[in-house]
Design a protein around this nucleic acid. Structure first.
Lengths: 169, 169
DNA sequence: CTATTTGCAAATAATTTGCAGTGCG
DNA sequence: CGCACTGCAAATTATTTGCAAATAG
């Protein structure tokens, strides 16, 4: 569940520095809330963090937890996993495929990749668990939006700019 | 946006057959709702499907759309993408990593993979868009749950058994 | 015919927001 | 010592559910 003290200190210092740099106040609540996400490896939900810090900070409110987590997200210090901000989308394509989601218009498109199809993770995951399903999602700007010919539609994905597992591949 | 007529017919026949096989009635609403997800490639949300079929079926209600989509999901005929049924989870690990989520206890764990790190999708995606971030999530049972030593905690993931991009890797 | 299914409206769950008091820089 | 921040309660959004009327097989 926990991270090394060294890594935790680094994360907390980054947080303090980022707040200072942005002229945002470092409150007791913010520090404790950030510390709680930063110190664990289990990707807690806001509610879970709220429960965990109540022992130390009996008066914090759940909305402050949300505000602080999104603040840290906006500062690039944490990322989100399975954000509930979007509506569920449905897919009738049952063949093996992956998704590309446009960060501007929200359009989700299927794509195929032999390289991905050929990958085997069971060895990598042998100490973690038994894989059943895999879901891969690439986010970026679709060609139409890149050409600026298509207006924004559907739910916006703004808040999720920084996705977990972040990287360009 | 649209799928070939042949593929659409196949999907619709599968749907009819699955309903018949399960003794579930084929209503006008169910058929039109399913046809609407089945015929497009853009992974619409329930609300979007609702808006689209209102022209043909002015009296359908949004809850019937949801009921039908989850029914099709339960029958294994469609999958979901970014289901909103779960709470947002936060991750303070900023290094390149992927997620394993236990389908039983919901625990999310990070893992690393050189094979994935080395993958390049920009060629594959050249006709789709410009990749910015990638998010990969493997679902399966974690070792603790497999040994049956850990009770269920947090939100359950039941409804999401069938994830898009389905496959074991 | 009659058990399912539908549409409506009201209920939930997660998250967000307005506002007045509070405290950090 | 002022303006950003907090806690509270009320609002919002996506989704679900109870129930009486409608309908597929």
């Amino acid at each position: 569940m926990a991270i090394s003290k060294k890594e935790l200190d680094k994360r907390i210092n980054n947080f303090k520095e980022a707040l200072r740099h942005s002229g945002i106040k470092l409150t007791h609540q913010r520090l404790e809330i950030f510390r709680e996400v930063a110190k664990v490896i289990d990707h807690p939900a806001a509610e879970t963090i709220f429960q965990r810090i109540r022992k130390r900070l009996p008066t914090v409110s759940l909305d402050t937890v949300y505000r602080t987590l999104w603040l840290a997200n906006d500062l690039g210090l944490i990322t989100t996993l399975r954000s509930s901000r979007q509506r569920t989308r449905f897919d009738a394509n049952l063949s093996r495929h992956y998704h590309f989601i446009c960060s501007k218009c929200g359009l989700a498109m299927d794509f195929h990749s032999d390289e991905l199809d050929e990958l085997t993770l069971s060895e990598t995951l042998k100490d973690i668990g038994l894989p059943e399903t895999t879901h891969l999602e690439v986010k970026g700007m679709c060609l139409k939006c890149a050409k600026n010919k298509k207006p924004r539609e559907e739910t916006s994905y703004d808040r999720e700019q920084k996705v977990s597992g972040n990287r360009q591949i």
